[in-house]
């Protein structure tokens, strides 16, 4: 049996390399599996600063289960002429020119078997958007990974507001 001898220095270098490799691996895996990339790096902050309401781009949350995401038509209302020279703006103009709808990724997720209605929460329950969506309205760029809304959070709120906690009120 051959015994491999390494010096202390060599050991440290090897350890460092392994660490870097593992970190890179984790980052890559997160991007591949857990990450989410919007087709356009949408800047909520700048839109909000220009006096846009949530409803302007998410037009359905008062009427439907879904809040809706902006269609190209919505974007064109303001962006018919480029507003600025950012990367995102350039990409948007490309979409507008090709008339191809932007495939926005879904950022907020509830568990798969949960029926969640925006209207029920926003209109009937009088809940602020930020209760679940936090400060996304002020963020300059989209989050890099989806935000999972966990049952614990729902239950807590339901308890506080004394609304139905029957399983099938949400689990369809």
């Amino acid at each position: 049996m051959v015994k491999i001898k390494i010096s202390r220095n060599q050991f440290l270098v090897l350890l460092g390399c392994t660490l870097v490799f593992v970190i890179v691996l984790i980052v890559v895996l997160r991007i591949v599996w857990g990450g989410v990339r919007q087709p356009i790096a949408f800047n909520h902050q700048i839109h909000a600063a220009n006096d846009l309401e949530c409803l302007d781009c998410h037009p359905y949350y008062e009427e439907q289960a879904s809040s809706g995401r902006p269609t190209l038509e919505t974007c064109i209302t303001c962006h018919e002429e480029p507003l600025g020279e950012s990367n995102a703006e350039r990409k948007l103009i490309e979409y507008i020119n090709s008339k191809e709808e932007i495939k926005w990724e879904r950022l907020y997720d509830v568990p798969e078997d949960v029926y969640f209605s925006h209207r029920r929460h926003v209109v009937l329950g009088n809940i602020e958007c930020s209760t679940c969506h936090g400060d996304i309205g002020e963020s300059p760029r989209p989050p890099s990974k989806p935000i999972k809304i966990k049952m614990k959070k729902c239950m807590k709120c339901h308890e506080e507001k004394e609304v139905d906690n029957d399983c099938i009120a949400c689990h369809i």
Partner: peptide, 13 residues
């Protein structure tokens, strides 16, 4: 997993 992933996607109706 008892539920298939990626299913729940309410859309504009």
């Amino acid at each position: 997993s008892s539920i298939r992933k990626g299913q729940w996607s309410p859309g504009v109706e």
